[in-house]
Write a protein that binds this DNA or RNA. Structure first.
Lengths: 194, 194
DNA sequence: CTCATATTAGTACCAACTACTAAGGGGGAT
DNA sequence: ATCCCCCTTAGTAGTTGGTACTAATATGAG
């Protein structure tokens, strides 16, 4: 294969690196059949950081994701998030979430969605549920998509009060008030559960 | 703070590195107030890879850790049941029920145990949660065994009020009041979710 | 042919290591 | 006290994957 011209090579380089950030300059040089120096000049011009920096960035992103992913497992997917202010999540009800005979979702799943949304919206390393008051207003059925809306009402020293409203289309299915206790990792204290 | 002994230092090192893989040997040496060489010997003995390898591993970790933790299997096992009067269930907390970093059980699992106990204690074909007010009183950790105790306070036409107290050994970890809506299969009505 | 641009070569230096050798230090058991 | 062992620290050489810089060479367009 013939060598590319500079501009083509650079745009391909950008693509390659973003697809696979784990390639050294040496590998890239082989791949594009140019010298290492050329790759380095290209990176310089394109502001592509070196291998180690690229990996580090990926690792840090991955770390963040692990936190939010572990929340998502149970609770649906967070679609909007304004830290310490509000958040929205989406939960699609499947058969496994329902009473088999009636296809009505078990309340604990709706609770779980609301509860973990409250954990997510509070931007502290440790967030535990202190209390919850929930009204289940309307049945939720299989295949319904539940949007849960959390709004932080107040947030002080160590406790946030959050209001959650979950809807299926325009119908409110759940209303809840949560008190969440939060702290930094290092602080020592004893309370609560989630 | 005085220096740790070797074995203590090494176990703390393991913990530190797994919590934050982004620390160089130099930083670790400062943190533990020992020389860089000591940290390196420790890493050698403990098979902790170097910084760059650690970062790389984190970066490569696939996001497909999607363990499906069904809340259904979570609700514990019913150990005592007096229909429409009281019931007790047992729930053993496993790692998958906790926040990874802190081994503290997520509140939604404790809620799920209490909630499904309320469903079980009411002897009607359809039982849905109408409202719930929960206080999470104490943290529950991995390997704790939670006994949940539901007592029916009142039961009338279509609504039962139930008090739930969950304990780990002698410590109360959760107190809740549930209103459960119930009916016979054939009755038609529209309310609630679980 | 000329001249700018592109490419390659080469050097010195850096961070964060591994792998190794060697020197001290501090306790216990004898 | 002495000996010995383990732990700790120091120091050197070599590695990877770079940055930053200078200098030489190729190439193509006018």
């Amino acid at each position: 294969m013939g060598k590319y011209k500079k501009d083509v090579r650079q745009s391909k380089l950008l693509e390659t690196v973003s697809k696979n950030p784990f390639l050294t300059d040496e590998k890239l040089a082989q791949q594009f059949d140019v010298s290492i120096q050329t790759i380095r000049l290209d990176r310089l011009e394109l502001n592509i950081p070196e291998l180690r920096e690229r990996i580090k960035t990926v690792a840090q992103e991955e770390k963040e994701k692990v936190r939010s992913l572990s929340l998502q497992e149970v609770t649906g997917e967070i679609v909007e998030l304004e830290m310490n202010v509000r958040a929205v999540s989406r939960f699609s009800v499947e058969e496994s979430h329902t009473f088999l005979k009636y296809n009505i979702a078990r309340g604990q799943y709706l609770f779980a969605q609301a509860n973990s949304l409250c954990v997510a919206v509070i931007d502290y390393p440790v967030v535990l549920t202190k209390s919850a008051a929930i009204d289940f207003i309307k049945q939720v059925k299989v295949n319904d998509i539940v949007f849960s809306n959390a709004t932080v009402q107040s947030i002080d020293n160590h406790v946030a009060k959050i209001e959650v409203i979950s809807k299926v289309e325009d119908d409110t299915v759940l209303k809840g008030k949560f008190e969440m206790y939060f702290k930094n990792e290092d602080e020592d204290n004893d309370k609560n559960s989630d």
